[in-house]
């Protein structure tokens, strides 16, 4: 299978991309990720900053106009959504196959 070498996404990356389906700035991303993961993924500032930089480099997210100069707002791009879909499909397959094999 010819798969993107960026896959699988890390848990952190996956949640950040999900959090950015709606535009958000850095601190809001932290809060959203914690909420989406039911408290299991808590991002620290230094880690999040590096992750945002990396996602921008891959062009999976982009900066959008923000009212506040000190807080930049980001949103997921089409390429970012495509990655989320690919990784979700990968996980769906894993889930299905796990259930089938463990039910025997």
């Amino acid at each position: 299978m010819n798969r993107d070498k960026q896959l699988p996404l890390t848990e952190t990356t996956y949640y950040i991309l999900l959090a950015l389906v709606e535009p958000a700035h850095g601190y809001l991303i932290m809060q959203k990720v914690e909420e989406l993961s039911e408290g299991s993924v808590k991002l620290a500032a230094g880690t999040l900053y590096g992750a945002i930089e990396n996602l921008l480099k891959h062009q999976w997210i982009e900066a959008v106009k923000s009212e506040e100069k000190r807080r930049k707002t980001y949103v997921i791009t089409e390429a970012g959504k495509a990655m989320l879909h690919l990784d979700a499909e990968r996980m769906q397959h894993m889930l299905a196959i796990t259930e089938r094999l463990l039910q025997r």
């Binding site: 850095g26 620290a44 999040l48």
Partner: peptide, 16 residues
């Protein structure tokens, strides 16, 4: 400078 400001703000928002 604006990138530096954003960076500091992110840390300050989260208690650093």
């Amino acid at each position: 400078q604006e990138d530096f400001m954003e960076y500091c703000t992110l840390f300050e928002d989260s208690g650093w």
